[in-house]
Nucleic acid binder design. Structure first.
Lengths: 333, 333
DNA sequence: GTGAAAGCGCTAACAG
DNA sequence: CTGTTAGCGCTTTCAC
């Protein structure tokens, strides 16, 4: 960054007005005579003036920048959420500072502190756990935060999600009605709030209500190879139907089963709980809980714009509708 | 953003030193007696002081922020590049302002102007075309720019790529040696520099050298359904081997062929020119030119850090090694 | 409707 | 080694 060539002061001189007036014009303040405004605009154009957003930020205490905290960019689940966020941010003229965590180099609260130091006006948080320190940091600076596709365990923060319990129950029910009784749940982090408080309870309740025993919850299964490898265990445990939280994991299970010469869905039904593009391009295509990821991101960002403007938000815990998309990894399609 | 609770001034008073000294401590300047430093640190901790990066940016004319211009977040090609960029940015303590374009809401040069207004110290550019106005904007402010996974047609800007010509030629050669003579190239934007100046010429040259006629270049094929739909045309044209630039497109062709009851690779060999996770999880897995996407992003970001520090960079047009990964969509695997 | 002036919170000479 | 003093470029009262 080098010395700025043309500043508001230059424009003021060029247009023979004060800086204050130029500032008013730049910010669309109406208290400027049309004549004056035109003169200023001409100066702006002649000099190719561009406002320095950093100086604006310092003076006005608003940076029109929001922070985005995302676990992993290469996970399409987050990428699709981000796209919705990005589009709405653009619409409201906010820039996005993106911070990916789960990066071992920087802890979550450091990442957040860094965003806060940059004086972001708000934060969209997508990690599946919100640590205490992180929550405290937000509250300390009263920077608005919206959780997208996740929740905090105290429901202190606004969030945009789907009804995970209902969705999972529906998925298990689908398989149950196909005659599958040895149902299992395959998840990543068991301490993720959504798993801990929604998916696992939903699963246990389903098993109980249908007298299917204690069942099996496989945890720590995060990527394609985890999925691929867990398959043999599923076989050992006699599983004939699974809900898998990540679709790349589901694909791993699928590929493993195929390589073992098994038939999907006859030998094993698979439902992925977060459908991305991947779920639909594999063969057989995966039956999926289709979360409206783009919309969830968009709604979260929209909510954040309201919070940043201190507008009232009627419902700070939005649940968007999902769809159970039946494809070839379950029967009856 | 509300009034900042504790500023450098408060720390100065608390530690009974001047602001300058606090600033020195904060910035790791060595010209501070250990005793004084400790006293300041104590003040910082007691008061929970956090520097205001916006004020730092205005005063120092460095924001430790870089802009990222990316066409589409949900394209894994860019997501993997971004991951490499992000990791290195973190390592050098830069934040990333991400701007996705191809968003019809904002034109490329607007996006760039917005970044420049935010006084980013540098930019990583990943779009497959660099419009004239964009190039001019960069040069006007002499903000360093590095192109990742793309090039500008004048080679004015530093870039990190692979040798696309060589890679494609190798891919065609592989299929040629499998006895495929009706080879085709399937791309998105024919005016993208990489296509216009590397892939298409490489294809034409290959066809010519092997006396295979003029061949077919299918353009504007960008997503899964484009790929799915173009397949019938490939059949009509008697194509028996294709290089496809995007892997999701390649998967579309693959799925279309399978649905038509054809055999891959016997009836049609497919090589994808930019392997992401998707290429390896479909069935049959796709033979692919594996670009070192993560590394390309990392190298680009590293180069940018040097440029931002006015360090010398010996080679501003880096070509990283690729790999031709033989899987099941070609014979001889 | 417009201008003057006082900051926003910090860095960076320049003295000492 | 440490303090003083100008700003960085802009917004925002407060007068007029």
């Amino acid at each position: 960054m080098h010395k700025q060539e043309v500043t508001i002061y230059d424009v003021a001189r060029e247009a023979k007005v004060s800086m204050a007036t130029v500032s008013r014009v730049v910010n669309g303040n109406n208290n400027v005579r049309k004549e004056t405004r035109d003169r200023v605009m001409k100066g702006i154009n002649r000099l190719h003036y561009q406002p320095n957003a950093v100086a604006q930020g310092l003076a006005s205490k608003r940076t029109t920048t929001v922070g985005l905290i995302v676990p992993d960019l290469t996970n399409l689940y987050f990428a699709e959420l981000s796209k919705g966020i990005d589009d709405i941010a653009l619409l409201y003229k906010y820039n996005i500072i993106m911070t990916s965590i789960e990066n071992r180099l920087m802890k979550e609260d450091q990442a957040i502190q860094s965003l806060l130091n940059k004086q972001v006006d708000g934060v969209i948080y997508m990690s599946n756990r919100l640590p205490r320190e992180a929550a405290d940091a937000f509250k300390r600076t009263d920077t608005p935060v919206v959780l997208a596709g996740t929740k905090d365990n105290r429901e202190e923060f606004p969030s945009v999600t789907i009804d995970y319990k209902k969705a999972d129950t529906e998925a298990f029910n689908l398989m149950y009605n196909d005659g599958k009784k040895n149902l299992a749940l395959v998840i990543g982090d068991p301490k993720a709030v959504v798993n801990d408080e929604n998916r696992i309870p939903a699963y246990k309740q389903f098993m109980k209500e249908h007298n299917l025993g204690a069942g099996h919850v496989y945890t720590g299964i995060k990527d394609h190879s985890d999925g691929y490898n867990i398959y043999s265990q599923l076989v050992k445990d006699g599983i004939d139907g699974v809900v898998v939280t990540r679709d790349i994991t589901a694909v791993g299970i699928l590929n493993s089963a195929m390589d073992a010469g098994k038939k999907i869905p006859e030998d094993l039904e698979i439902v992925t709980a977060s459908a991305t593009q991947i779920a639909s391009v594999v063969c057989p295509a995966l039956t999926a809980i289709r979360q409206p990821l783009y919309d969830m991101g968009a709604v979260a960002m929209r909510m954040l714009t309201k919070l940043m403007n201190s507008e009232k938000v009627d419902n700070i815990h939005m649940e968007l509708p999902y769809e159970l998309l039946k494809k070839q990894s379950t029967l009856n399609h």
